Simulated scan of single mutants.
Amino acid sequence: MVTRKDVAERAGVSVAVVSYVMNNKSNVKEATRNKVLAVIEELDYRPNLIAKSMKTKKTQQLAVLVNNLGNPFEAGILISLEKSAMERGYFLFFQKFQQDQEESLKSLFAGRVDGIILLGQSLSITTVEYFHLQGIPIFSIMEPSFNEGREVPFLDIDWGSAMQQLFVHLKSCGYQSIAYLTANEQMNSHHYEVRNRALMQAAKEEDIRVDELIRVDVCNFETAYSHLLARWTAQPAFSYQALLCVNDLMAAGAVAACKKLGISVPEQLAVAGCEDILMSSQTFPAITTIHYPREAIGEATLERMHALIQGHTVTHVTLANNLVIRETTS
C-alpha cells in the first residue's frame, strides 16, 4: 500500500508538505503543490480515511439536506457544492429532508459527519442546539424562514432588493397589478417563505397591487401547469396584468398553460420567475427571472463550513443578484 512517506520521497519533499497539500493549505508554493499532486496521481495514493478520522476525530464527511433532487435549481447547487467539497477533501452525502422525520437526523448524523449543510430548511431550535452540543456546525444555503436569533448562519441573495428590481421593471413596462404563484402555507418552513415576505414588502413599497395570491402544494412545472389550466378555464377573466412565480419551474408551467389556452405572453399576461435555471432561457418566450448565483455558492459555503468546523465564527453572507429581463415581460 502506498503511504504518505512514499509520496514524500518520490516528490522530494517532507511528509509534512504532503500533508499540507492534501489538506489544501496555502503555505505551499504552487510549483511544489503541482509536483506533489502529480506524484499522488502517479502512485495512485489514497489516504487511509479511517485512520485519519480516529486520529483527528473528524470524518471528512458533510451531510446536505435536500428538498427535491429532481429540482434543477437544487441540482445546480449540489454540483457546485460537490466540486468545492472535493477540492477541500470533504465527502458529501445527500439526505432528503422531511419535517416530520427531523428527530431521526440526530441518530443519523451524530458521530458520522463533521457538519450539516441546509438548503433553506428550518430546523427546530432543539435540533440545532443538539448538533451544536455535539460539535456539529450547521450552515444554510438560502435563509431559513424560521431562524429566530439567527442561530444558523446562512448565505443568500437580498430577496427584498431583488423583488424591488423586478417591480421597478414591471412598472416601467406599464404593469400595475400582479398575481403571485407560490407554495402552500403548510410549507411555510420552507425557504420560499423568505421570498414571499420580500415580494409582499416590495409590492407595498413600489405601489404594485397583488390581486391574487395563488398557493399550491408542490412547486414544480406539472403542478403549476395543471392548476393554472384548471383555474383559467373555469375563470377565463382575471384582473392582474402579470404573474410572478416563486421559482422558474412554475413560471415555465405558467407559460405552458398560457400557450394551451391561447393567452398571449406578454401582451395579455406577463410572467416572471425566480432562480434563473437553464429552462427559463429555453422556453418560448424566454422567461424574465431573478438570477441566483449557483456557481459561486459551493466555494463560499465550503469556506465557511470549514471555518465552523475549525471552531471559528462566521457571519451571514449576501450574494450579488441581478434581474435577467427576457421576452415574457418585455
Rank of each mutant, 00 (worst) to 15 (best):
I116R: 08
G135Y: 02
N247E: 14
E87Q: 07
V255F: 01
E185H: 08
R326D: 14
S19C: 04
K52R: 14
G174E: 01
L69V: 12
A198I: 14
Y292C: 05
G115A: 15
P137E: 13
L119F: 10
V28M: 12
Q101W: 03
L123S: 00
L249I: 11
V168T: 07
L308D: 04
Q101K: 12
I40K: 01
L105H: 10
E103L: 06
A11Y: 06
L108M: 15
R112E: 06
L166K: 13
L65A: 08
E212C: 11
V216W: 04
E148L: 07
S239W: 05
A85Y: 06
V218D: 11
L199I: 11
N147R: 03
Q235W: 00
L278I: 14
K29H: 10
E295N: 11
S140R: 07
G135P: 02
V216P: 03
V324K: 15
S26T: 15
A11S: 09
L269V: 08
A307Q: 10
N322Y: 15
R304L: 06
Q268I: 05
A254G: 13
S14Y: 05
L170D: 13
F167H: 03
I214K: 09
Y225E: 12
N196E: 15
T233W: 02
Q176T: 15
S239F: 00
E212M: 10
D100K: 15
V265D: 01
H132M: 02
E267G: 00
T126M: 01
C258K: 10
K58A: 13
S14E: 09
L302C: 03
N68S: 08
L199T: 09
N188C: 11
L199A: 13
T289G: 14
D207E: 15
I297H: 01
G262M: 03
V152D: 00
L49G: 10
S189D: 12
C245S: 07
E303S: 15
L166S: 12
S19A: 10
K29D: 13
I263G: 05
A320H: 09
F97Y: 15
C274A: 14
G111A: 14
N188A: 12
T32E: 06
E41L: 04
R209S: 05
S189A: 04
S84G: 13
G12W: 07
N188F: 13
K204D: 11
D6W: 11
S264L: 11
L166H: 11
V66W: 06
G160D: 14
N24T: 09
E205A: 07
T301E: 07
A183Y: 02
M187S: 08
E102H: 08
V152F: 01
F94S: 06
N196L: 12
A8M: 00
L308R: 03
K29C: 03
Q310E: 14
L105K: 06
G12P: 07
T288M: 13
L108E: 08
I263K: 09
M22V: 02
V271A: 01
N196V: 10
L323Q: 08
S280G: 12
F167G: 06
Y45M: 07
A203D: 07
G253W: 05
V210Q: 11
V21N: 10
K260Q: 10
Q241W: 04
Q165H: 01
M200L: 03
N196I: 08
K5S: 13
